[in-house]
Write a protein that binds this DNA or RNA. Structure first.
Lengths: 155, 155
DNA sequence: CTCTATTGCGTGCATACGCACCCAAAGTTG
DNA sequence: CAACTTTGGGTGCGTATGCACGCAATAGAG
């Protein structure tokens, strides 16, 4: 068997570590998540949970599947992410006319907590924007959107 | 008690949903991760695992803590992420001179799998770059780096 | 109306993520 | 050296993530 495995190209590894889209996105995502989780701590909500509450407010009475599509998230992931919020009484899952669907609604407590968290979120967001530079953020936001389209919609 | 909770401003919610850095980063991160996990499936490695193998190759014999810092990841997260790779015999954790440290090394099997996965990764990366636009990706990569600095180093 | 395909959700499984906490080894100070 | 501090790691807990699979309700075909 003269078939030997290709030698491990360290240079390629370094290049991959530097340029990998997946790695760099995940890394940035972790860093930003921590920043926002930190800021949101006094609200008792994680950034992921705040996002869900916001989406529940905007898409009042939406089904789980539809909401998952909006958030570009697996349906089963959303199902589980809803659980802690439901336990804490911030959202409610009720059946629609179609007995299969489960409609997501904000409870009054959820509305209160969301309303209280929004200013805290805004503060964190503005601080981040400022530190990154408004112009750069604007551009970055557009690129994040383009990335989702490229990565998700072409699957 | 005339102290009523602030009314829930739907417009603010929509604005938050649209602009939130955390949400948009996490969303993009999910989409890109799926794209790469998809592409990497024949290699038997997830994108997160490939990244760790690459890092293990580049930082040969590095400690867990140091590697976690490099990857901008919690130490305990890395500890657990190493486990499946160790079980599969792709990496090895050995003690250093300092009895506290655990040094991460690629096994021969790990080197083989990594070498085999690199071309697959490159294919996925190039495809993504091409669809997003090379110039845009270049810019985006720089902004991702700046984001990590802003979000992480300022904590 | 029955049979079948589709749709909406949930669960089991495995991994990914980070905080709080604990333990042991190494360094520091008196 | 003994006592304290710092450092490197792991674990318990709870959440986040998605795939494969299964179940029930609906829609569609005949």
């Amino acid at each position: 068997m003269s078939q030997c495995s290709p030698p491990l190209d360290l240079q390629k590894c370094i290049e991959a570590a530097t340029n990998c889209a997946c790695f760099n996105f995940r890394k940035a995502s972790r860093a930003v998540t921590q920043l926002f989780d930190d800021a949101l701590q006094p609200t008792g909500l994680r950034s992921t949970q705040l996002v869900i509450l916001i989406a529940a407010a905007v898409f009042e009475g939406v089904s789980v599947s539809r909401l998952a599509k909006e958030l570009v998230m697996d349906r089963s992931t959303l199902t589980r992410n809803l659980r802690p919020l439901e336990r804490r009484g911030l959202i409610l899952l009720e059946s629609g006319k179609d007995e299969r669907t489960r409609l997501v609604r904000l409870t009054p407590a959820g509305q209160t907590d969301l309303a209280a968290a929004l200013p805290v979120w805004e503060q964190a967001q503005l601080q981040f924007q400022e530190k990154l530079g408004d112009e750069r953020w604007k551009q970055l936001l557009a690129s994040l959107g383009a990335t989702v389209e490229v990565a998700h919609d072409s699957r």
